[in-house]
């Protein structure tokens, strides 16, 4: 007999509830400090995706998809890619594709390095949402199979 309750046990749910915000925050930290410390758009994006996947593992698919639906995820993914491309194309303002046209600032300040933080944000959107969507699709087939049984 299948239990009606979705997701894992109470212990897992409680721990997830406590940590999931921290994981998301850490992911954002990694993205924003990509130009200063190890990490960057890709690593941060993976951590952001992990926080949503964590939610899905503990609470079941519906809870996670309520936070970020599949349609919205696919829009965000395309937006991330377009944002990255437009930053690159905006470099033509200075005469070159991918030119770092913004004010560079002082090294090791949070607001420095011109377009690199913006690129990191775009990459994290694309990677984070992309990984999340891949995970949803992997789970999708399993759920369809369970429903048929």
């Amino acid at each position: 007999m299948k239990s009606k309750e979705k997701g894992m046990t109470l212990i897992v749910k409680t721990v997830t509830r406590l940590t999931v915000g921290l994981i998301l925050l850490y992911g954002i930290y990694i993205v924003l400090h990509g130009h200063l410390s190890p990490g960057g758009g890709f690593a941060g994006g993976v951590i952001i995706a992990l926080s949503f996947i964590h939610l899905m593992l503990a609470f079941g698919r519906e809870t996670a998809l309520k936070k970020l639906s599949q349609a919205r995820a696919s829009i965000l993914e395309s937006l991330g890619a377009i944002m990255f491309l437009s930053i690159a194309v905006l470099g033509f303002l200075g005469g070159y594709f991918f030119l770092n046209f913004l004010f560079k600032g002082k090294p090791f300040n949070l607001f420095s390095a011109g377009i690199i933080p913006l690129c990191n944000i775009a990459i994290s959107l694309k990677v984070g949402v992309g990984l999340f969507t891949i995970f949803v699709v992997l789970v999708l087939f399993k759920i369809l199979k369970e429903d048929n049984e």
Binding site: S74, I75, E77, S78, L79, A81, I82, L85, A88, V89, F97
Partner: peptide, 13 residues
């Protein structure tokens, strides 16, 4: 490279 990439993402959006 720019034109096909832009087309690809705009189409998916």
């Amino acid at each position: 490279v720019i034109i096909p990439l832009a087309c690809a993402f705009l189409i998916s959006l």
